[in-house]
Structure formats: structure tokens, C-alpha cells
Design a protein around this nucleic acid. Structure first.
Lengths: 132, 132
DNA sequence: GCTTGCTCCTGTAGCCACTACAGGAGTTAA
DNA sequence: TTAACTCCTGTAGTGGCTACAGGAGCAAGC
């Protein structure tokens, strides 16, 4: 029992997580089923705000919902910190690979766009670049 | 009528595009409906190989199927090169933005992972980083 | 001519992480 | 009491594929 009773709308505002997304997280079991008011509405507390904020930050860092499940386990002590470390490193390596790919991509796009704007090519330089 | 009659399997091998994906592209109208053999099977030619290779390269550069539709229009002269240029520049800017985001992300992940492996934090540094 | 094994066909459903309804019910302020 | 608002469930859509199930065409060997 931590603090006030919070509606789903207030929870959404405080955490920046969409109302529909909160319900979705409940549905897939990322957050536990919320308590209900007499009228059947979800009631949250400050613990839920904490948890949802945690999830949101993890999502912003690109962790998948499954990875977040593991991170939440680490947070509540049900799993070793080592696992969180492994996840973070694995994810960071994936991010690094993405950056490398995107850099190459950016170069290719820039080259094509530059040749095009200079009107050096007879046809369209971008179409040309994609044709072989 | 350009060249030999090519099955969907051969087309897939020559272009590196999955068979199911070829059928998917036909379904969404990214490629025109293929001609059929007497037995009802799709028959392709070298023009189709060209087109599909074009599409594949564009996908590898991260263009959406809708953007590729426009690029194909430019390729066949039904749309100005200017439009392709605009698309490429817009896409390149999006890629640049992604790179910036991922760099920040990579830094955050590295910092958290490093603090964790050094065992400097009392709890888990990664969980800590996500908690506020 | 028949069988075996391969390729291909259509149609549907699943993936991820949401997002967007429709149609109804609880809640609050004037 | 009425209006405006928030919330409820359930379902379907997004993009770009991918993965079946259940059937049919086709080529080679016997």
C-alpha cells in the first residue's frame, strides 16, 4: 500500500505511457493485474508508477518486453545482476551493429542524393544507384 | 518478353528475395501480377529480376514499400527525378536522426554496463540506471 | 503408366509493440 | 438530472514479412 489511489489516466500522465499501452502491458503480463474499484475500474498506486516508469525507460533504451521481464526480475531480486549486465552488453552490441549499418546506409544515400542534385548523371542518380 | 521463363523459386534465388515475400509483394501491388503457366504457376522474366533486385536494394537502404512505389515510378519515367531526390534526402535525414539516437543510447548502455562490471554500485547499476 | 519427391498454389494466422476504434458503463460537476 | 468526461472490454489494424496447412502441378526413375 504505497500512497494514493491513482486512475489509469493519472498513471498515464505521470509516466508518459499511453493508457492503451498500460492495458496492453497488463494483458501480456508485463505488469500484474491492477486492483479494481467498486465500479470495475483499475486502481494503481505509487509502486505502479515506479514500475511503469522503469519499463518506459527500458523501452526507450530499446529493450524488448521479454528483456524487460528479466530486468524487472533483477530489480526485485529474483535474478542475478549478472543477467542484467549480460542483457545490457548484448543489447549494446546490437545497437553498435545498427549504428555501423546506418552509417554505411547514410553514406550511400548521401552519395546518391549529391550526384543527383549536381545533375551529373544522365538519368536519375538515385534510380541508377538502385539499379546495380 | 525479355529472356527465359523463370519460376518463382529461381527468381527468389537470383534476387535473394524470399518466395513468400515475392508473393507478398504481388499481393500488395509492389510488383504487377505475374503471368501464369497452363498449370497456374507464376512465370517471370528478366525484367522481373531487375525490378525485384531494385526493390531489394531499396529495402536494404531502408525505404518503405510506399517509398519504393514512388522510386519505381521515377525509374519508369512516370515521375520526376526530383521526387526521388527528395525521398532520398528525407530518408537520409531520418537515418541521421536514428544514428544520433542510437549513439546516445549506446553511451547510456555502456556506462551502465561498465559501472556494473566494476561492482562499484551497491545494487545493480543497470537496474539503478533504469530506476531514475 | 505409376510412384516418389520436389516445387508451387491459395488462404489464413502469427510476429512485435502498440494504436485505434466501437459500444457501453461508471463518475463528477453544474 | 443532465452533460461531459473517463474508463471498460473486445476486436482489428499497422508494416513487412514469415510460417504454416492442405492441396495440386511437374520431372525423373522404374
Amino acid at each position: 500500500m504505497s500512497g494514493a489511489e491513482i486512475t489509469i489516466g493519472a498513471l498515464s500522465e505521470q509516466t508518459g505511457v499511453n493508457i492503451e499501452t498500460v492495458r496492453y502491458y497488463e494483458r501480456i503480463g508485463l505488469i500484474p493485474p491492477a486492483h479494481r474499484s467498486a465500479g470495475g475500474r483499475r486502481v494503481f498506486d505509487t509502486d505502479d508508477v515506479q514500475r511503469l516508469s522503469f519499463i518506459r525507460r527500458a523501452r526507450q533504451l530499446g529493450f524488448s518486453t521479454d528483456e524487460i521481464r528479466s530486468l524487472l526480475d533483477v530489480a526485485k531480486g529474483a535474478r542475478a545482476c549478472k543477467d542484467a549486465h549480460a542483457l545490457a552488453v548484448k543489447h549494446r552490441d546490437a545497437v553498435r551493429a545498427s549504428i555501423r549499418d546506418l552509417r554505411r546506409l547514410e553514406r550511400t544515400l548521401t552519395e546518391a542524393a549529391d550526384r543527383c542534385s549536381k545533375g551529373a548523371s544522365p538519368g536519375c542518380a538515385i534510380v541508377e544507384a538502385l539499379s546495380h
